[in-house]
Simulated assay, not measured.
Amino acid sequence: MSDIVSPGCDLMEPMKMDALCRVREDNEIVTDALTVSREFGRRHDNVLAALDSLIEDGTLNHLDFKAVEYRDGKGEFRRTVELTERGALIAMPFIGGRKSRQGQSRLIDSFLAMREELRRLREQKTEAEPTRALDADEKRMRRDFLMLGLAADNLNLCQSTRLRMNSACADLHGCSTSLLPAHAIDAPKDGPQISSLPTDSLRSLLSKVRAHYRASESKKKVMTAREFYELMQFAGMVEYLSRASTSTDADENGLKWFWSISAEGLNYAKNMTDPKSPRQTQPHFYRGHFDELRRKLSALMPEYLKWKAEQALKTCAEYAASASRCPDVREAAEYREDLR
């Protein structure tokens, strides 16, 4: 028996001469010119000549064959050619030989059988590999990242805050942050996403407006931050949200309230998180868009004041109705008198 050897390499897995094809180390099914010569009833040198001709004219490309060596009965290395399944199918009609028909049939059957055996072995290997269950740390990490994503979407957090939150979560779970960007772009929703725009808190921006009015001796009144946020809320640009808190500034129900920019307001401000209070948003307003926002809200002021007056009258009516149901008639009358 002879062994097939890769050129310049140690002895490969032997291909016994009673096997028509074998699986190479790269999982490619191959045969060789020695096998073809035996099966087709042609001399090996004639088979090599036919293959060389097919290689020279490009009928066989570099993926269809590989030059290898084999060790003959004397222990000397001789040249041969290894053929892939495609290469063998192309070459067989050009080989000839007294047993070419039988050789072609046996070689094709051998390739098909080997291909089926490979498929069976792969399926067995897949079935034998146990499905690895996620451990507690992996489950916690997935849950934390999922929660961060939901929170970022629901609170309309800006990109820089999302990046900081993900970096903190990665550090918490011992994950590398080398693939995360160094910075994120915070820009208006409908604006060009080229670079982050400078922002300020609402109080800081309103203070600058007051300073400008004082310098110009204008008698215009500047809204407080609370009034500004309420007007934005009327316009649908912010939401008033709450979270559980044990701090002294929580209300009687143990809730702390905060403002959050809604999707409608993302052209004028962004939601950030305060490292000291990471569970609530902290709106920051784009400096270059603040005057436009003030003009837009000023145009809504008459409609807002009318709505606010209607709400006040409605509250008074409900207050008076509750007083009229008071069992003490005199107190009820005094109650209504006070309302006047």
Score class of each variant (00 low, 15 high):
259 W>H: 06
260 S>T: 11
260 S>Q: 06
260 S>V: 06
261 I>L: 07
261 I>M: 09
262 S>M: 06
262 S>W: 00
262 S>K: 04
262 S>L: 06
262 S>V: 06
263 A>E: 08
264 E>I: 06
265 G>V: 00
265 G>W: 00
265 G>F: 04
265 G>Y: 00
265 G>A: 03
266 L>Q: 11
267 N>I: 06
267 N>M: 08
267 N>Y: 03
268 Y>G: 03
268 Y>P: 01
268 Y>W: 12
268 Y>M: 06
270 K>W: 09
270 K>F: 10
270 K>P: 04
270 K>V: 13
270 K>C: 10
271 N>G: 03
271 N>Y: 00
271 N>W: 02
272 M>G: 08
272 M>K: 07
272 M>A: 12
272 M>E: 12
273 T>D: 08
273 T>N: 07
273 T>Y: 07
273 T>H: 10
274 D>L: 06
274 D>C: 09
275 P>N: 07
276 K>M: 14
276 K>Q: 11
277 S>W: 15
277 S>L: 15
277 S>V: 14
278 P>K: 04
278 P>A: 03
278 P>E: 08
278 P>Q: 04
279 R>M: 15
279 R>H: 12
280 Q>P: 06
281 T>I: 00
281 T>R: 04
281 T>Y: 00
282 Q>Y: 14
282 Q>K: 13
282 Q>E: 14
282 Q>F: 11
282 Q>G: 02
283 P>I: 05
283 P>C: 03
283 P>D: 03
283 P>R: 05
283 P>T: 05
283 P>F: 01
284 H>G: 04
284 H>A: 10
285 F>P: 00
286 Y>G: 02
287 R>M: 12
287 R>F: 00
287 R>L: 10
288 G>I: 09
288 G>N: 14
288 G>H: 14
289 H>G: 03
290 F>S: 02
291 D>M: 13
292 E>K: 15
292 E>G: 08
292 E>T: 13
293 L>R: 02
293 L>A: 00
293 L>C: 03
293 L>Y: 01
294 R>H: 06
294 R>E: 13
294 R>F: 06
294 R>D: 12
295 R>T: 10
295 R>H: 07
296 K>P: 00
298 S>V: 08
299 A>E: 13
299 A>N: 11
299 A>Y: 09
299 A>D: 09
299 A>K: 14
299 A>H: 13
300 L>T: 02
301 M>D: 11
